[in-house]
Design a protein around this nucleic acid. Structure first.
Lengths: 329, 329
DNA sequence: GTGCATAGCGCAATCGTATGCGCGGAGCGA
DNA sequence: TCGCTCCGCGCATACGATTGCGCTATGCAC
């Protein structure tokens, strides 16, 4: 059985409230020096550890923040790993713990929403699709939420500059004189993807008549072969400059090219978005956009803490990205 | 303000205890059908969500399990990502949530230990070095702990069959007739590494006089160049069969080989351990051992739940691994 | 009219902590 | 001696739930 404040009080013939005040350093409550010493010494000796549940219940504050993501973790999801690393850093700074909410199979948005507001956490980080029913519920509730990487309607967010990143990429492609362009998007909905797509379209439109072709293709993230086939099926001059919405899709495309014997960048030029480093690659070869995901998460923690503290926080914090040239275009 | 059971009781002119019993489906407590209906309807209408802190405090059970890892998350740590994914699956099945304990900078083992036993979680998953002071404290405490992937003294663990995996690898190398061997270990201490090293040494010893050389090198996980230099510095017949303690180190070595123009597998043969899939690679080229890390985590959750339930659980659960041939040896 | 069972519910303690307020005694000045 | 201040601490309640036990009213048999 864990030792409680009452145990200490009983041992010393004091009241539990006095023990509590001393251990919390409540200076308004005057206690003799000897009593203080005895309490501290006894707490030490009995290895007293306050019950966090009771404290949270009473204080109305848990020092726990949650993370809800619509996607599960796996070794190929570099994005979540980076975000998680950043959250770890941020939480450590603010002495918070992180509660990963595990979505039960068959759980409805209602269930999930209820599970998130059961009092165990002070705030929540969210990464999901904008049309996730959870988003509307959360933004209508009193819950403190910060969206990560992808802006969500009605919620503050910390993001990377998707538009600028894509603008820079296409600008670089234009400078190289490509005439056929394509954008590879995922089959699911994500706000940042649409931003990148819009920026891509703006830049392509600015090309005017000099662009021979420009298409947006939706492909499964783990296999870009269909996309590649569709591109090559249409006759026209090569190469085609294919901008992928993220690095993982770009690597899918690169693999598809290798498997079909398509030369990069002579026939297909490829760009990514994220800028993950990986020892597994010979060198940085993928031309991509470097996104500070760790920093995104760190800043998100700062913001959430301020929000919990009652401050107003900006609707969107956009972090700058950098072009990372490579030899795939 | 969240609505409490007392609010429902007040609204219906009932007592809070009756409300609680109905909502918990306590059949021993007899209540008229109308009252039951009214309570359920009102709870629904007011969107009542029981306060998890109060429930946990009273019930002595939180339905939260913790994860403590000595390493931080990042995109290159495939291992943690896989483990985390498995924990997600397992926790979802048992309707648990996962509390990531963020180690604060400057926190001592004492601090960490105390933070882990503050009543917020029912049990804990652990991945750290065997000489981490935390391990001794935890195994001496009443806390329910399951070690992940790496056995820890005094604690139950779920692991992969390190010995068998390494045995299979070296057996395959022997069959190919290599005469010089090396083992690349990390500079930090981890039980599974030592198991792999011991298995490697046993197999090499079994070669007897036919082995021209066999060395164990400790290299930083993110850069194997020094190791490579040390190997090549010593004259002798090539190739050298280098078994790396994990995939990441193997990729480090492969990169070092590329950078120095060393041919694989003609001059240096490379094997890994983990078997992570990655779209970024052209094909499965690294010869390695496939470890079911997701399954390790899933089973760890099952075990921890049984342990929390009062059962005795096996000291070590070892999951089988499979040899994944490649073209790096 | 009495006894007894049962249906239908409430009282109150409990989990461990935080905190507003009050209370007895000592010391001191007038 | 009276009144005031300040020291040192405890009482009691609250946070929001769970749960053992007991209480009242009704119905029914006798």
């Amino acid at each position: 059985m864990p030792v409680t404040a009452k145990d200490i009080a009983r041992e010393l013939g004091l009241s539990q409230s006095t023990v509590s005040r001393i251990l919390n350093g409540d200076m308004r409550h005057r206690v003799s020096v000897q009593t203080r010493e005895r309490i501290l010494e006894t707490a030490q000796r009995l290895a007293y550890q306050p019950n966090a549940l009771a404290q949270s219940l009473r204080r109305g504050r848990t020092n726990v923040v949650g993370l809800y993501t619509s996607h599960r973790y796996d070794a190929r999801n570099d994005f979540l790993a980076e975000i998680l690393g950043g959250l770890q850093i941020g939480c450590a700074r603010h002495r918070l713990d992180l509660l990963l909410h595990c979505g039960y199979a068959g759980r409805t948005a209602d269930d999930t929403f209820n599970a998130l507001r059961d009092g165990r956490m002070d705030g929540l980080f969210l990464h999901t699709a904008p049309d996730d029913p959870l988003v509307a519920k959360l933004s209508a509730s009193a819950m403190h939420v910060v969206a990560l990487a992808d802006p969500l309607p009605g919620l503050p967010a910390v993001t990377c500059d998707d538009s600028d990143g894509m603008r820079q990429i296409v600008a670089a492609l234009r400078k190289q004189g490509y005439r056929r362009y394509a954008f590879l998007a995922p089959q699911f909905m994500l706000a940042s993807v649409e931003r990148r797509r819009e920026a891509w379209e703006r830049e392509i439109d600015a090309l005017g008549k000099s662009a021979e072709e420009s298409r947006v293709l939706r492909v499964p993230i783990e296999d870009a072969t269909v996309g590649l086939e569709a591109l090559l099926a249409k006759p026209g001059t090569l190469p085609i400059a294919v901008s992928c919405w993220n690095d993982r899709t770009a690597y899918s495309l690169l693999r598809a090219c290798r498997e079909r014997g398509v030369r990069v960048p002579e026939e297909i030029a490829v760009t990514g978005f994220d800028g993950f480093l990986d020892d597994k690659l010979p060198e940085r070869q993928l031309a991509t956009v470097g996104c500070p995901w760790v920093e995104v998460a760190v800043q998100a923690v700062d913001l959430l803490v301020r929000r919990i503290g009652g401050e107003n926080i900006p609707a969107e914090t956009i972090l700058p990205v950098t072009l990372l040239p490579g030899d795939t275009c």
